[in-house]
Nucleic acid binder design. Structure first.
Lengths: 200, 200, 200, 200
DNA sequence: GATGAATGAGAATTCATTCAT
DNA sequence: TATGAATGAATTCTCATTCAT
């Protein structure tokens, strides 16, 4: 009769300990011993739940993208340009724990980004984001909330890049107080004027 | 009389070899032996020019920021909004070797970005960039090229963040073909509409 | 449940292997790999028990002084001058393994002896030895076994130095056959005449 | 026409710089660069005068023994036991620079003392010292300054060991204030009583 | 003769991973 | 299942020695 453990709960617990550890010391400076200690487990036990150190990081990052995608899917179609932009503003606000995760991501995958290995996954993700924005814009176009000559597909992708850029910028340099709500509002204002129908 | 060497030239040569090596294998996976071999030197020789591996990365990154600042300083004051935006578009185009450097930057400093150590340097850099854009906008405002109600200071910083965000996005995910000239044009178009004076 | 090891026994085993290795090759010429091999362990395992090479040497030397002090403490108060001198003779006889340890000591700490770092510990040790001899002499004086005008305190310390000097001499040059029992007897004889009451 | 340099003077200068350096940092911690800098020479230049680092130490030590032997040879035959003992006392006083040299000696040769390599040289030296003392004692015996039953040969060697032991003790632990003139006087007093003719 | 730039052998140390208990 | 002791591959860094200038 094997001891019954909830494999998933265990993995989640480990991942939560890992985020904290990685956030505090970085991926490369965190040892397996650190992770195990943070999770209150023995070193060997970690290997019962993850194949190796990299697998822990991967699982962590997968989870993040999964949550992102879910959040996106759950988002209601915005009724107005203003609502849409509010959504963008929200997307640009990154809580510190996610910011930490993004930094870990670059520490782990940074070097690999050049060779399309991880890149493909990301492409998919950003395509999804761009399409999501594009479809929202198309909808707003039909209801006359954005200027009629807008190439919604291109604009969607451009916005995805801009928003993601702000997210990156915030996550990576957010410790500096330069990137605050004011900046985001100003950016949103620029977007507003760039998207809305012209005229009075 | 001993061999006479140009210390600066030697360091430059090493740094150039290092960029290539780091770009190819990443900072953490590159060994001192790799760097030395890439530079056509013995392991020990590297240590005559750099105190250690981290110092190589630091010098590399310092150089990058130095060049960036210099480029900025050299930039002529843009006569028109269009010229200004062309400048932005240019700033968003990152050649692959600089992109590689940016990736190295995050691999090296990423974990440390949370604790304001490196952050301060970056703050200064982005302040500079924001002020630079702000001053250009102020000038454009006086010549009536941007809408008179623009808060040039805030807008300057917002643009700095957006541009830098695009640079990061491009550098980190640029391997995927999603981030191309089209995207940048679309983004610039949004900026244009967000900044220009309203009306017919 | 992990393997259970007796940390102390392990350290002792390592130290014993280390003495042999250091004795054979010297401290500086012995590598961690040598020590590990001699102890029948993997290189990394050593580091589970000692922080580094120096710590091994330190532990070795601490042990030696500990044993010395213990031996001293256990020594019975000598009933006669002859018994006292027999004790000195015994103290001057250094078994080869202790001699090796003394040589290691000088290799490790020799350069540091000038700056009173290690010196303080040694001072304490020799004070103890001197006081020990002094108290024995005082006792012998009360029972009329040494000449009544003897400054037992000074004489105690002088004997400590002389004995220690012989120990050092023996340990360092003992490989040469010059320092044998004959020498020690002759020295003891000189001490005898120098300490005993005068007269017929 | 080769540049004319006084090879001997150069070597002496280097050795003098080396003593200082070794005394300050120890043999193993002193690098060739340190020695060269201390001598005001280029690293490569050292190798024109000494085959390698060890040769420097060897020459240093040889010099020391040479001077010792010379001093001994120059010593006048002592007219009285008191004069003889004064000589011993003098021999036990070690100036700090010689003490440093002795410490270097043990750092360099310590490990090798077990295997009779260096030991043979030392044996010779101590034989010489013992014989020197023995011959002095024999002379003193003929003039009735020491007790007639003294085995001068054995006593000579014993004294050599004792004196050398005190020298070692002083050189190695001299930094501690324990080993002072008082100690030496007391030791000499013990010797005096051990050697002089008995009686009133 | 003099020099110090170049070198690479060699050493200490770390740490992901395995596996006996 | 759970553990942490054991391991050795891999890495950084030092420094005696060589040799082109």
């Amino acid at each position: 009769m094997p001891k019954i453990v909830d494999r998933d709960a265990m993995q989640t617990a480990i991942l939560e300990a890992a985020v904290k550890t990685f956030a505090a010391k970085g991926y490369h400076s965190s040892t397996i011993a650190d992770l195990a200690a943070a999770a209150g487990l023995g070193k060997g036990t970690l290997y019962l739940y993850f194949a190796n150190k990299e697998a822990v990081a991967e699982a962590m990052i997968d989870r993040y993208f999964g949550r992102m995608a879910e959040r996106l899917r759950a988002e209601a179609r915005p009724p107005s340009l203003q609502a849409f932009l509010d959504g963008l503003r929200g997307a640009m606000e990154v809580p510190e724990d996610e910011a930490a995760l993004i930094r870990v991501f670059f520490e782990v995958y940074g070097p690999g980004l050049a060779s399309g290995d991880v890149a493909r996954t990301l492409s998919g993700h950003f395509d999804g984001l761009g399409d999501h924005y594009a479809s929202a814009l198309t909808h707003l176009l039909t209801v006359g909330e954005v200027r009629p000559d807008l190439d919604t597909r291109s604009a969607g992708r451009a916005l995805a890049s801009l928003v993601d850029g702000m997210v990156l910028h915030g996550a990576l340099f957010g410790a500096s107080p330069r990137v605050g709500p004011g900046l985001r509002s100003e950016a949103i204002d620029i977007f507003l004027r760039g998207l809305r129908p012209e005229g009075p």
